[in-house]
């Protein structure tokens, strides 16, 4: 595993009486694509701004390559940022926007030219050198912003919801482009989004935050399949979250019966939350199901149907291509590995 390039140790940031970031601990490895994910106001931007040097933590330390950088100003950090609303220099053309950082570093003219050419190629804006940035589309401006940051070859690139203002199609394209760029240039990306799908698609590591607190850190697959608490399960994808009791290792009770599962390490008879993803539940004949219920609603979602089935004291959401009409009695089945048991949160 590559080394830790950035570490946040017990970092807290308050604005007046709002605790925007609450005692977080996090490390970021070199060349990682890490995403901070969470609902609006959970402290993602604040975390990013502290790494970029635009805010100073009230408590705790931020380390870069093992060196404390809490009070190092942004212009002395080997970190560049792609701002949410691009923040391009409207008095300069595309070339000069990208050249800004290089001119400050007094990079020789021919090398500067070469690097900017390469960047323009990377972001597919060749021939746009003399264009005025105001005359570019949102997606093109976004790419200028990325080129302007990347051309400095920082060790770490911070991106604050860089695709937030783009339409869905362009967003998907840019997601792929960004992922490719990150692989090609070998720079650590710290990415902020509140779009869970974007986070799962793009990242090596996802950090789920809520109310200034880190809820879970893990790979997209881990986060999706093994949510650590109710918040994560709820925020990432659709889920059925059922209250249950963990009788013993590998045996959990909910919806009025006991199920085998793969989870262990809980106290005997500990109250727990159980997560089952809607796509993991299959519909069968009523007598073949683990739980019996009645279909209460059906919505066609394009690829699949989304059905609500009332049974076992809970309304289960099921996503399936196998449609059953409203009012029909059905059975629900799932495998032990589809059951995820979590500690009951507050």
């Amino acid at each position: 595993m590559s080394k830790k390039i950035i570490e946040l140790n017990n970092v807290t940031k308050r604005y007046n009486d709002v605790t925007a970031v609450d005692n977080i601990n996090l490390y970021i490895r070199e060349n990682e694509f890490i995403t901070l994910l969470g609902p609006s106001g959970c402290g993602k931007t604040t975390t990013l701004r502290m790494i970029g040097g635009f805010e100073e933590p009230d408590e705790g330390d931020i380390l870069f390559d093992g060196v404390r950088i809490n009070d190092v100003p942004p212009y002395k950090r080997n970190i560049n940022t792609v701002f949410q609303r691009y923040a391009l220099f409207t008095h300069l053309n595309v070339y000069e926007n990208i050249a800004f950082g290089l001119r400050i570093k007094k990079v020789p003219k021919d090398e500067m030219d070469r690097r900017i050419k390469r960047m323009l190629k990377l972001v597919e804006l060749e021939g746009f050198e003399t264009r005025h940035v105001d005359s570019l589309s949102g997606g093109q401006q976004q790419r200028v912003a990325i080129a302007r940051a990347l051309v400095n070859e920082p060790k770490v690139l911070l991106l604050d919801e860089p695709l937030g203002a783009l339409d869905l199609k362009l967003r998907k394209e840019m997601q792929i482009e960004l992922m490719n760029m990150q692989k090609n240039v070998g720079i650590t990306f710290i990415y902020v989004t509140h779009d869970q799908e974007e986070a799962l698609t793009m990242s090596d590591t996802v950090v789920v935050m809520n109310k200034g607190i880190i809820q879970q850190v893990g790979t997209p697959v881990d986060i999706y399949n093994e949510p650590e608490n109710r918040f994560v399960a709820d925020f990432i994808g659709e889920s059925n979250i059922i209250e249950g009791i963990m009788h013993e290792d590998y045996l959990v009770e909910f919806s009025g019966r006991k199920f085998k599962c793969l989870d262990k390490g809980f106290q005997q008879n500990e109250p727990v939350d159980v997560v089952i993803r809607p796509e993991d539940i299959d519909i069968t004949e009523p007598d073949k199901g683990l739980i019996q219920g009645v279909v209460t609603s059906v919505v066609f979602k394009g690829v699949h149907y989304e059905m609500m089935v009332e049974g076992g004291g809970f309304e289960y959401m099921i996503q399936s291509t196998d449609m059953q009409p409203v009012g029909v009695n059905v059975g629900l089945t799932f495998e032990p590995e589809d059951i995820h048991v979590m500690k009951r949160g507050s």
Binding site: G52, G53, F54, P73, P74, Y75, I79, N80, T81, F83, A87, L88, F89, F100, G101, I104, K105, R148, A149, N152
Partner: peptide, 8 residues
């Protein structure tokens, strides 16, 4: 902030 971010 972008200017400062770029080293100014």
């Amino acid at each position: 902030e972008a200017a400062m971010d770029l080293g100014a």
